[in-house]
Write a protein that binds this DNA or RNA. Structure first.
Lengths: 226, 226
DNA sequence: CGACTGGTTGACGAGGGTCAAGGACCGTGG
DNA sequence: CCACGGTCCTTGACCCTCGTCAACCAGTCG
């Protein structure tokens, strides 16, 4: 069930995975404490689809993507997690999506006591219910985007979501490459790139670099998001 | 906890909303009981997006669709609810999707005590968390379908989902029209119709009528669903 | 019988995917 | 210092899947 550890590209991350963090990751039982801090390098896998779900994660810093794969490699990213978000909780101890670090990431892992276990504190269950409900609502909004919006509307909605969640007013530093944005929006990276160009040509955004976006006209952007 | 119930009542009869049922629907406060039985006619609105959420519903018989609309009328159905399912619970007392009866429907409504209210029983919160988590997982699976599968794969997956959830082995009575299937799968009704024809021509299904589907080759159907 | 809802099928075109080439921007090493 | 390799991004040409528009058919109800 536990897949072999693939940390091929640790070297690309500015922040290396320490031996201790590496050990934590696959054998977190070594810790007796209720919460375990962990670090992951860029593109490192936090957990994989199908793996048994022994821990819940709270993101401290960085960005995480949750995704599902089809057998032929098609991928759908269901969410980007930002600091403060929790992820990885499941009802049946099996992860039904995988989670990877988009950039170097710090998390805190909590032992996950099979959800319906009676000795889980009521307050914790309530907190989790709130977070799960919010996640469900966001996912339903995303269904509408994937099922019914065109490419330009999808990118506009994505930029607005990122502005809102990152708390910045009109300048945005995207943590993820075009390929991840494409897999989040149900498009190809080429189409995402073309839509960026279209928004730029319309004077709605400015691209200081591929990852650094300035929103020049939020009103028009909201109008495009449908 | 999860009460399994026989498949939907799919009679097409235009069972009118009785005056009492209509009153229940908009002023359920008239009832003092903790649970209120209600009936809804085909296509009747159970609650609308944006409405305040005073009740949670448990489906007794029939089929319900949950959907969201864009301002120009594009619609995405996020789920079909079958008997035993619960729907309509929200974290902030505002419905973020609308719910309508696909066929004549019987539900039981429970007063919804602002979720984070301390006097909600812990058992109820746990039950709700379980159902919400299952809903979240199904919605994430649907993201993958909408973002990455083609028309034929979508219809195949839909038919398999309906077979599985209705508990039937290989004959299926679809409660919903092509238009609803299309809005669930992110397609047009014409494309849905063409994909039905394609599956029929391939000998994988048989169409005794538009709503009555026999699965002839489940293995091939599963292979098509990707 | 006619009106209405729901479903099928065909012709056509557009939106976005595919394939390919090339540019920008790294960090590393000669 | 520049060359090199790798990753990421952009842009163009072409084409295919699915949406649009329209006609027609099947049931059902009044």
């Amino acid at each position: 069930m536990l897949t072999p550890t693939p940390l091929a590209d640790i070297s690309h991350g500015p922040e290396k995975l320490t031996p201790q963090a590496f050990a934590d990751r696959r054998q977190p039982d070594a810790f007796q404490a209720p919460s375990v801090p962990m670090n992951f390098a860029r593109n490192a896998e936090i957990f994989a689809e199908g793996e048994s779900a022994g821990y819940v994660y709270k993101l401290v810093s960085g960005v995480v993507r949750s995704s599902k794969l089809l057998s032929d490699g098609r991928r759908q990213i269901s969410a980007f997690h930002l600091p403060g978000d929790m992820f990885g909780f499941e009802i049946d101890d099996i992860h039904h999506a995988s989670a990877e670090a988009v950039v170097p990431v710090k998390v805190v892992a909590y032992k996950w006591p099979s959800l319906m276990n009676a000795d889980v504190s009521s307050g914790f269950v309530r907190e989790l219910l709130g977070r799960t409900m919010i996640g469900l609502r966001q996912t339903q909004d995303h269904l509408l985007l994937l099922g019914r919006k065109n490419a330009l509307e999808r990118l506009a909605a994505f930029l607005l979501e990122m502005v809102r969640r990152s708390g910045s007013d009109h300048t945005l530093l995207l943590a993820m490459p075009r390929h991840d944005i494409a897999d989040y929006l149900g498009l190809t990276l080429e189409t995402v790139s073309r839509m960026f160009a279209e928004l730029k040509d319309a004077g709605i955004i400015e691209l200081e670099s591929a990852r650094r976006v300035s929103i020049r006209d939020v009103v028009k952007l909201k109008a495009m998001a449908a």
